[in-house]
């Protein structure tokens, strides 16, 4: 799977680095000073690199834990996100990472202890109030968990700090590490969904809807909290039919009483990201949808966006109480 691993000199002897390297005995190992030498270089092509991404083992020096935009909150006043990894195993065509990063290589920041220290500092800053930490903005939280041991390393912090809540945003079925430990109530495994046909068209390499649904059922049975994320909503002529089928399928099979939260938001990208991704994939239908530019973002026209949000909100709130529902009220 991974044929090249770049290793920052500063963490070359870190036990986590050595452990990860053992898993890839046949990969070429290339020493580097800082991951940016590879990851941020111009003249790279994200689409080509996505065919064979390398792994970059690096140290994150600052900005480990950052405030989250207000519209992404799921019930707490204080919200932060963190990214132990940049880029994703999957290749979802709507993903903003394609527009944000020069490179499709996976960067794994292996100094977890520094992330946890910063989380601790953020928690202390709020004097016992609830603080939510979101993982999965810049990567899929679980997809590489068997290699990164991310959950095993981070969950003990949340076990000890009930005021902190962790959201693991994912499309992955890599739940083994979670299932083998006792569930905690302040961790939400939040699965992203689009309807079957849309997922097949756009969510390349990601587990299909049925597999994600089965992962949810297993986690719920084990006592884990689940989130449902319908963000981005994707427009197609028959979206009402397709989203109705998706909601019916999900809400009939999962235990809705044990759903922590549901959120939704329509597809939109910052203009610069949109233009870059559109150039990378000029043959992609998604980018020929009826879109508009507004406030330096590109997304569906207000009419489509509002119709979709209203339609989906109506169905979701038939299954989920209002206090668990968090629509993202971002303009395009």
């Amino acid at each position: 799977m991974i044929s090249t691993i770049y290793i920052e000199a500063e963490i070359a002897e870190h036990p986590r680095t050595l452990d990860i390297l053992k898993r890839f005995p046949y990969a070429s190992k290339v020493a580097c000073e800082r991951y940016g030498e590879i990851f941020n270089r111009k003249s790279q092509n994200f689409r080509l690199q996505k065919k064979q991404p390398a792994l970059i083992l690096a140290k994150k020096h600052k900005g480990m834990v950052l405030p989250t935009p207000k519209q992404y909150a799921i019930g707490a006043e204080h919200n932060y996100y963190f990214s132990h990894m940049l880029n994703c195993l999957y290749d979802c065509r709507y993903c903003f990472l394609q527009g944000m990063f020069q490179s499709a290589h996976y960067v794994l920041f292996i100094n977890y202890e520094d992330f946890i220290e910063d989380m601790h500092a953020s928690l202390e800053q709020h004097n016992g109030q609830a603080v939510h930490f979101f993982s999965g903005y810049d990567c899929d939280s679980l997809a590489l968990d068997p290699v990164t041991n991310f959950t095993d390393e981070f969950l003990p912090f949340f076990e000890k700090n009930p005021n902190a809540l962790l959201e693991l945003r994912t499309k992955s079925t890599q739940t083994r590490n979670l299932l083998k430990r006792n569930p905690i109530q302040n961790c939400v495994i939040a699965f992203s969904f689009t309807p079957d046909k849309i997922a097949s068209a756009l969510e390349h390499k990601a587990p299909n809807i049925e597999k994600r649904l089965n992962a949810i059922i297993d986690l719920q049975q084990a006592g884990w909290q689940i989130g449902l994320r319908f963000d981005p909503l994707i427009y197609t002529k028959e979206y009402k039919k397709e989203y109705t089928e998706l909601f019916t399928r999900l809400f009939s099979r999962i235990n809705v009483d044990l759903v922590h939260s549901v959120s939704l938001g329509s597809f939109r990208l910052p203009k610069a990201y949109f233009r870059k991704v559109e150039k990378l994939y000029p043959d992609e239908k998604l980018f020929s949808a009826p879109m508009e530019e507004e406030d330096n973002n590109i997304g569906y026209s207000a009419e489509i966006r509002n119709d979709m949000l209203a339609f989906c909100t109506n169905i979701i709130t038939q299954h989920i109480p209002a206090e668990k529902f968090f629509p993202c009220h971002e303009t395009v």
Binding site: T4, V30, A31, E37, Q44
Partner: peptide, 19 residues
């Protein structure tokens, strides 16, 4: 997979994406 200019200590990393 890595080119270092000895004089300027600048480094480039050619991207080998093929078998």
């Amino acid at each position: 997979n890595k080119i270092t200019d000895d004089r300027h200590t600048t480094t480039w990393y050619p991207q080998i994406l093929f078998k």
